[in-house]
Design a protein around this nucleic acid. Sequence first.
DNA 1: GATGAATGAGGCTTCATTCAT
DNA 2: CATGAATGAAGCCTCATTCAT
Lengths: 220, 220, 220, 220
Amino acid sequence: MTTTTSSGRAKGSGDAAGGRRRARGGQALASERREHLVRLAAELFARKGFQATTVRDIAKEAGILSGSLYHHFDSKESIVDEILSSFFGELMAANRAAVERGGTPREVISALVRIAFGTLEPHRAAITVMQNDWNYLKHQERFAYLTKAEDDVEEMWVSALAAGQTTGLFREDIDPKLTYRMIRDTIWVAVRWFKPGGRLDTEGLAEHYLKVLFDGIVTH
Amino acid sequence: MTTTTSSGRAKGSGDAAGGRRRARGGQALASERREHLVRLAAELFARKGFQATTVRDIAKEAGILSGSLYHHFDSKESIVDEILSSFFGELMAANRAAVERGGTPREVISALVRIAFGTLEPHRAAITVMQNDWNYLKHQERFAYLTKAEDDVEEMWVSALAAGQTTGLFREDIDPKLTYRMIRDTIWVAVRWFKPGGRLDTEGLAEHYLKVLFDGIVTH
Amino acid sequence: MTTTTSSGRAKGSGDAAGGRRRARGGQALASERREHLVRLAAELFARKGFQATTVRDIAKEAGILSGSLYHHFDSKESIVDEILSSFFGELMAANRAAVERGGTPREVISALVRIAFGTLEPHRAAITVMQNDWNYLKHQERFAYLTKAEDDVEEMWVSALAAGQTTGLFREDIDPKLTYRMIRDTIWVAVRWFKPGGRLDTEGLAEHYLKVLFDGIVTH
Amino acid sequence: MTTTTSSGRAKGSGDAAGGRRRARGGQALASERREHLVRLAAELFARKGFQATTVRDIAKEAGILSGSLYHHFDSKESIVDEILSSFFGELMAANRAAVERGGTPREVISALVRIAFGTLEPHRAAITVMQNDWNYLKHQERFAYLTKAEDDVEEMWVSALAAGQTTGLFREDIDPKLTYRMIRDTIWVAVRWFKPGGRLDTEGLAEHYLKVLFDGIVTH
DNA sequence: GATGAATGAGGCTTCATTCAT
DNA sequence: CATGAATGAAGCCTCATTCAT
């Protein structure tokens, strides 16, 4: 019922394992370094995708050698795992909150749209990876939670859309599932061209899109 | 004025330059083998993208060794080039015809949407490659024509959208360029999940999308 | 005692073999075609060396496909064999004639120098191949005759030089073998920079070199 | 003004850019391994030339896998670059010193000859590569400095020869440029047959050659 | 005699990963 | 924690050669 995140936090987290007990400070520091590296990797993934980014790229960005990364992470995949699970964790939590908050289907959909656009900037890397490397990741056991999460998200959207149709708010002649997919894609593909600091921020994009989504581009 | 396609049709045609005139049959046969290989490659590109597909994958699919591919093509890139340029050739021609045919902006936009959805099936490979490998391709001299073509397409869409606004047909409060991008992406990203033989064919998708695009999902 | 040339003249020459007896005209024609191909190959070998020239290069130059070359030659090596053995055949014959003609050692050496420079133009390919690919060729059974020929040539030079020393014509304090090697290399390396049609032709080069060789560059 | 050497010293030095200062020992050790590999490669290049030596040959000689070489070098070419630029660096410096030291043209030429013969042993690889692979290298941007260096060397020789003619020391009826070329070739081609430990060392070769060069082989 | 297609060995290079120091 | 060195699999491509048609 709660968020399905990836499992292992990788190396060193197995506390009892080595018998060595590090002081709180040490742990925190290690964690900071780790997170710093994840952020650097994320930046590269956001630019080029997961497969196109080499561990050497990441290491160079951090000023270390590629082998040294393996003190912090089991594998390249565990880095992206961290990024993706954090993204999905936040997204699911926010989505769930929006659904639980309730309101009219229009309000729910609006909230979901705003949440999705809101992830565009803070989670560029995760979204880029999903766009570029989905095919590669989806078949791996380790990333099964991605598919699960997608299904959960879909469920929320489709429910909201269908509810809107039931209450006569949304047109009967649209397909909820298909519509969801198109909305989802439209929003996330924007990661390819959206550059922070442009004419519109992600909130602006969201409002613009909501207008088109609800009422179309034709004047009435 | 005419279609911007890639240049070289690659190997073989120039190997034995001589003035000898081969019978139609020979040429056609050579062409057939080549096109067969291109089709096989396209199928793989459509499934996995360009970079994720190895020349060995392609060769294995054809039942030959990877080196043997180079009897027919200069490089892996020349294969994808063939696929992409054929796609863009058709797309541009169809788009241009639609624009020249004229009609109300709504009619033009409808035509463009239908054309785009119409490419989804016959050009799955090209569209997949563009989704997955755009970053890799766009920086290469050889594929400069892709950027050019994209710009041309954008111009057509933005013109049509702006024209619709001028004539009062389309809302003033939407951004033509932004709207174009979202439409474009929405359509082409569909290549990821669209499977021929499902509930809706691409024409169905197009009509569905047009409804939402023009009038939104809200009842009026 | 007589010239050691390469053995097989390659495909088809084995007369009795196939039982087929071709008319004289056919033979001659085939021969012409063959020699034409050898000449084309020689031109390429002269420009780039043996190993750096591909059979495709040769075929393209002839306006045919590389596989078709194998109707005329057993292998790439048999082409170069033909070139080299023809060169050595001529060279040895000329050298032998010069030695047999007799005269003072100075006259003999002069003749040998002139002969060597004289091969520069008509046998550019063979000489280039020897400069570039000697290492590759010398270890092959098939080209054992090259080493043999080199030894024979060396014998003639060293004899002439030693004879000159005996008769008091040449300085006692030079090493005949060493001197021979330097002369030989100096002449043949010239194939790298000699371009027909320049200030000096190969005869001019020979005379210039003879001056330096016999009397040095210092005024007396 | 100073020596024209190649640019990049290749990999590793920039991998972990940071400001960290490594102890002398580390640097030196890294350098040692690298130089060891370069020496192994040089040995092979000296035997077979650059193109005829494969990276697998080099790796096998070092007892590692071919891919592992790329931990130390960017490419096969960067190895040969290192060898060649070191050779030319030394050669040019020594030549320049000889010219600046001055003396009669005869003394200058003697010095240049001795320097050139002196490179034969320590720089066998570089000289072999130049003999065998010059054609391949000369067209590459990266090795443009080779051509430049050759021109500079030629300039020194031709000046010295011409000066000798002006002062009446050297015969008027020889062509300085042509003579230079022949001297150059004579010396460097010796790399093909010179084996250290023979009757004459390179100093002996130099003295022998100087005798012939200055006074010829004829007794006066 | 030539084509068109293929082979098989081998070329240089990249990359995630491991591990002794 | 990091380095430096290495692995091993895989990537794209080249080339001499063979052979059915």
